[in-house]
């Protein structure tokens, strides 16, 4: 059975550029502005921004700033990362492991391969460990039973082995080539 490959992304873009405060929480909370490398502005609650260890330390170093530039991060993965962190904050307030697990699983299953791959450097740069764990597991799950060719195309890696070298590696690990899914 082949699983979803690079299908067009189905995720909503609603979180992007949404300066409106959360209507459920009436009391005004401190907002922090994040600026992506493609100059998109994200206003997020302080509690969400503090989930990003990188942003947190930025503020600790220079508390007076109100806009944090994120030169390595583009808007789309950032919006998805924010979406994830918002949910995690809710789980922090109301711990429910089962729900959290379910949300995390849904969060990654609905993402395209590209979305997942795009988010990994962002999660790594912003040092969001929980998200990185979830993403790493999701990518591992997607390539786990796939062929070498599939994994190469998943990451866009060029094969730099000669035919002989590759054949030798395959022989050496013949046991690993049994029961591989179709791409």
């Amino acid at each position: 059975m082949s699983s979803s490959t690079d299908s067009p992304t189905l995720t909503t873009e609603t979180t992007q550029l949404s300066p409106q405060p959360d209507t459920e929480t009436a009391k005004p909370t401190k907002k922090i502005t994040l600026k992506s490398s493609d100059n998109q502005i994200f206003e997020v609650e302080e509690s969400v921004a503090m989930e990003f260890a990188t942003v947190k330390s930025f503020f600790e170093d220079s508390p007076s700033t109100d806009t944090v530039p994120l030169p390595n991060v583009t808007a789309k993965p950032l919006s998805q990362v924010i979406e994830f962190c918002k949910e995690q904050i809710k789980f922090k307030a109301n711990p429910d492991e089962a729900q959290k697990k379910k949300y995390n699983a849904e969060f990654v299953t609905e993402k395209s391969d590209k979305d997942l791959v795009d988010m990994i450097p962002v999660a790594n740069y912003l040092e969001i460990k929980d998200l990185l764990d979830v993403l790493n597991q999701a990518v591992a799950d997607r390539i786990e039973n796939k062929s070498v060719e599939y994994v190469r195309s998943f990451f866009g890696i060029d094969n730099d082995f000669t035919a002989e070298e590759e054949a030798a590696l395959r022989r050496e690990h013949a046991w690993a080539y049994e029961g591989v899914d179709e791409d």
């Binding site: 591992a140 390539i143 786990e144 039973n145 796939k146 062929s147 070498v148 994994v151 190469r152 990451f155 890696i157 060029d158 094969n159 730099d160 082995f161 590759e166 590696l169 395959r170 690990h173 046991w175 690993a176 080539y177 049994e178 029961g179 591989v180």
Partner: peptide
Amino acid sequence: PQSMARCKSVSK
């Protein structure tokens, strides 16, 4: 382990 071993053939 099986996937890991296959990944060795992806690139040098």
